[in-house]
């Protein structure tokens, strides 16, 4: 990026586009209406009888009423992004913030609202790099994250297992009426509505999640089970006694075959995969 900066400045400027809240056609229609209003100036000398005035008032009220409801129900453009298993998508928001949507996830926002209030709804895993500016919120089942300009990772496939990892700036995390502030290099998770202690995260590990590589200092098998089910769409059958056992290390979560040998060896487990029925069974050896 640095070897030919002058060239980049010019090339980049040519790639910039001025945003718009209305199209050129809409701007023309607005203008055309204003022109016609200008040429239809009312004759101020005309006097209306009182009953005409009352009738006009009633008509105006009805029109106002209709206009209010029409406006209330005016279509607002909603953007819906979606990824399949083992797919990562990059999406640019109207303020140039970026979302990297990880596997099996969805993100939505409403364009008209977004320009006034930066808000995105998420179900799944995503890395956000937010442009500095007004508050930016990510809403998910059971909670939300509020930031100004920063980079962070949200894992929120369901309200059972939520994880937030901050790599730049500061984020405020709200869940179950509890508020936590995370600084760069800090993460926190909530499993079954129990909030963990803050843990340390490093930027490289967080970004590796977009390649399917997940690293944990400590995670229970129940939490891994939840992640696998949501991320890969497999039903995991796990012995209850195994649920609280903790795993530490790295797993490649792109398919059952990519991580089960490692997980089974590390935790001394037996496993079976049924691709047809989309089930994984884990038992103690």
């Amino acid at each position: 990026m640095k070897e030919n900066q002058d060239l980049n400045i010019i090339q980049f400027t040519q790639d910039l586009r001025v945003p718009a809240t209305i199209s050129k056609e809409e701007a023309w229609q607005r203008l055309e209406k204003n022109i016609s209003n200008l040429s239809e100036k009312p004759n101020t000398q005309t006097r209306f009888p009182i009953y005409t005035f009352i009738s006009l008032s009633i008509a105006a009220s009805i029109l106002l009423f209709i206009f209010y409801f029409a406006l209330k129900q005016a279509p607002t453009k909603t953007f819906f992004f979606e990824t399949q298993s083992s797919e990562v998508k990059k999406e640019i928001l109207p303020d140039s913030s970026i979302i990297f949507l990880n596997a099996n996830s969805t993100a939505t926002f409403t364009y008209n609202k977004f320009r006034k209030k930066r808000e995105v709804s998420l179900s799944g895993d995503a890395f956000f790099n937010v442009r500095k500016g007004k508050e930016f919120s990510v809403l998910f089942g059971g909670g939300q994250v509020n930031v100004l300009g920063t980079a962070f990772y949200v894992s929120a496939y369901s309200d059972r297992f939520i994880s937030i990892e901050c790599t730049e700036g500061k984020v405020r995390f709200e869940i179950d009426n509890q508020k936590v502030t995370l600084n760069a290099g800090e993460g926190i998770k909530s499993f079954d509505h129990i909030l963990s202690e803050k843990f340390t995260v490093n930027e490289k590990d967080v970004k590796e999640k977009l390649n399917g590589v997940f690293f944990w200092q400590k995670i229970s098998l129940a939490e891994i089970e939840e992640l696998i089910e949501n991320r890969l769409g497999y039903n995991v059958i796990l012995e209850t006694t195994l649920a609280t056992r903790n795993f530490s290390g790295e797993l490649l979560l792109t398919s059952p075959q990519s991580f089960l040998p490692t997980l089974a060896a590390a935790m001394n487990l037996d496993y079976t995969i049924n691709d047809k029925e989309k089930t994984i069974t884990l038992n103690a050896k």
């Binding site: 980049f12 790639d15 910039l16 001025v18 945003p19 640019i92 140039s96 890395f127 790099n129 970004k207």
Partner: peptide
């Protein structure tokens, strides 16, 4: 100034790291 960057929108098949570098440059430029 908050422009829309068509280059960022059109990047395909590049690593997140590259996209973030482009975004960083874009923010500095704006």
């Amino acid at each position: 100034l908050e422009f829309v960057n068509s280059r960022l929108e059109n990047i395909e098949n590049e690593s997140p790291q590259f996209v973030l570098e482009v975004k960083e440059f874009d923010e500095k430029l704006q």
